[in-house]
């Protein structure tokens, strides 16, 4: 019990640093691809710290609660992941925070944040089933949802190659990268201002940024356990996926919500079924 608590604390303390650092690398790399010099690698930390100490400006009380619960559930899901809890439960915890994050943006009456929130809902609709499919596929290989038992299977990647691709897709949608850069219009395309984030500001925006780092780490960790035999290799695979996502981000244009739904659903259902058929074929 004591050991688990320590792991829990270490994980939730470490995750934002890794997340922020990866975010910095993302920005640096994007700059490199675009032929720019780019910001320093720890730029995300400057941003978040600055936001934390800016003045609070609020539209209503509910958005404060939304920001906090989004952050806290993200922290909890990372913690649960670290102590090897139930995979499905972690996904459920994550989705609670997300629902509040969206509802908080919907509750401010700005048209920009409302449109952004609706798009974020569609994004959720696109990747939430994929994550559950992933859990189901993992169950079909390992016979368990418990991360402890899942990680006893050393090289899940060979059993779940297509689910790995799906997780990469989830990562792209989750990080709001092109071509799924819908809800916040992340890259200085400002037709939605900042979409779902428009009315979250100052310290509360910082909380949401930190929560996003946690969620990014969570998805990367899910990719990493595909090679749990040697977690170092797993981490390398996760990082490779992350870099591929950055490249995809820089070479694609934004698509529409409708395309995203059609694409992600057809791909995910097809891949899941083929992959699970493949698992039974391999036996």
């Amino acid at each position: 019990m004591m050991r688990e608590i320590i792991i829990f604390v270490i994980a939730i303390a470490l995750a934002p640093f890794i997340g922020g650092f990866l975010n910095g690398i993302d920005r640096k790399l994007t700059a490199f691809i675009q032929g720019r010099y780019g910001p320093p690698v720890w730029q995300p930390f400057y941003d978040v710290i600055k936001l934390l100490y800016k003045q609070k400006i609020l539209v209503n009380d509910f958005q404060v609660f939304s920001a906090y619960i989004y952050l806290l559930t993200a922290i909890l899901s990372i913690g649960l992941f670290a102590i090897k809890a139930d995979l499905l439960m972690i996904l459920f915890v994550m989705s609670v925070g997300l629902a509040f994050y969206i509802a908080g943006a919907l509750s401010t009456k700005s048209p920009y944040s409302q449109v952004g929130a609706q798009r974020e809902l569609m994004q959720m609709l696109a990747y939430e089933p994929m994550l559950i499919f992933f859990a189901i596929a993992v169950y079909n290989v390992t016979g368990s949802f418990n991360l402890g038992q899942i990680m006893k299977h050393g090289r899940l990647l060979f059993d779940l190659p297509l689910m790995f691709i799906l997780l990469g897709l989830v990562l792209t949608i989750k990080l709001k990268k092109s071509p799924f850069d819908l809800s916040t219009s992340e890259h200085a395309h400002q037709e939605l201002v900042r979409g779902i984030l428009t009315d979250y500001s100052g310290p509360y925006l910082a909380l949401i940024h930190i929560a996003d780092w946690y969620e990014m780490i969570l998805i990367l960790a899910m990719i990493a356990i595909l090679w749990s035999q040697n977690l170092l290799i797993g981490v390398l695979i996760a990082l490779a996926t992350f870099f591929v996502d950055i490249v995809i981000d820089n070479i694609t244009a934004r698509m529409t919500v409708k395309w995203m739904l059609a694409f992600s659903w057809s791909i995910s259902i097809l891949f899941t079924i083929i992959n699970i058929a493949y698992i039974y074929f391999r036996r």
């Binding site: 209503n60 629902a99 509802a103 908080g104 009456k109 609706q118 939430e128 659903w265 899941t272």
Partner: peptide
């Protein structure tokens, strides 16, 4: 598989129509 794939999509849809209802209920400045 058939059942679980269907349930996974259904759950996401459920979350969708309730979330936006919450957003509407609590909107205000």
């Amino acid at each position: 598989i058939a059942v679980s794939v269907v349930l996974a999509i259904g759950s996401a849809l459920t979350a969708l129509y309730y979330t936006r209802w919450i957003g509407n209920l609590l909107s205000g400045t």
